[in-house]
């Protein structure tokens, strides 16, 4: 199962590396979001610092949406969806493989965005461990939920527009939990970041477990 999951993930990452979509489109888009937020807040350093956690995770979610759509567009082109079904790979392995590839891309994206907010927004990290752990757990949650909803919309004619509509509400708990945890990690609000990290972890586990079981059903029906 894990061997197959890695096979899928390695294939997806290789395709991303070749196509350079993540580096040439998704990452610049994410950076652009941060810049536009700065413009919208009139480059007010205090306000930007205060809202850095929320702005960071909104940028992650919006640009992550592109990575998720891209991940499933390659499976809907030129009959590879049928070929994948005929391979006999267990749906749970497909889910874990797709989610792992998206997770690793999100992590790379978060690193880029973290550097950007530290420089652009003049933010400072007070609890590095909480910052890193939150980034990991939130990326896992977004990747799992994104993979589940990605397969749901993959063969719809309106997949480009329906995916954000379906996925963003589901990711609201991740956005809230990750933002609260970052408030603590960046010292922008007096909250218990580790408690929020626990909530975030719970949602990530639910998405991963539910996705492992539901992916096959959604794949057959999509």
């Amino acid at each position: 199962m894990l061997r197959d999951a890695w096979l899928i993930a390695a294939k997806d990452l290789r395709i991303e590396w070749r196509s350079r979509v993540a580096t040439n489109q998704v990452a610049p888009f994410a950076f652009l979001i941060l810049v536009l937020f700065a413009f919208a807040l009139d480059a007010n350093s205090a306000a930007l610092r205060e809202f850095t956690p929320g702005l960071f995770w909104v940028a992650v979610l919006f640009s992550g949406m592109l990575a998720i759509q891209r991940s499933f567009s390659i499976e809907s082109s030129d009959g590879v969806g049928d070929a994948l079904l005929l391979s006999g790979i267990e749906p749970a392995s497909m889910f874990l493989g797709k989610a792992l590839a998206i997770f690793l891309q999100l992590l790379a994206l978060e690193v880029i965005l973290a550097v950007a907010v530290l420089v652009l927004y003049d933010a400072g990290i007070e609890d590095g461990v909480l910052f890193a752990t939150t980034s990991l757990v939130a990326a896992a949650g977004v990747a799992a939920a994104g993979t589940l909803y990605g397969v749901l919309s993959v063969n719809l004619r309106v997949k480009e527009t329906i995916l954000p509509l379906l996925l963003l509400p589901v990711l609201a708990p991740v956005l809230i939990g990750a933002t609260r945890a970052f408030n603590d990690a960046l010292g922008t609000a007096a909250v218990d970041g580790w408690a929020w990290l626990g909530v975030l972890g719970l949602f990530a586990v639910i998405y991963i477990v539910f996705g492992s079981f539901a992916y096959g059903v959604l794949l057959e029906d999509s």
Partner: peptide
């Protein structure tokens, strides 16, 4: 079938190797 069932960004060898491994 009518569609190739291949990944356009992967090479010929990578595609066939992937499908060989995927099929066990």
């Amino acid at each position: 079938g009518h569609a190739s069932g291949l990944y356009g960004d992967l090479t010929v060898a990578e595609n066939v190797r992937f499908w060989a491994r995927a099929c066990g």
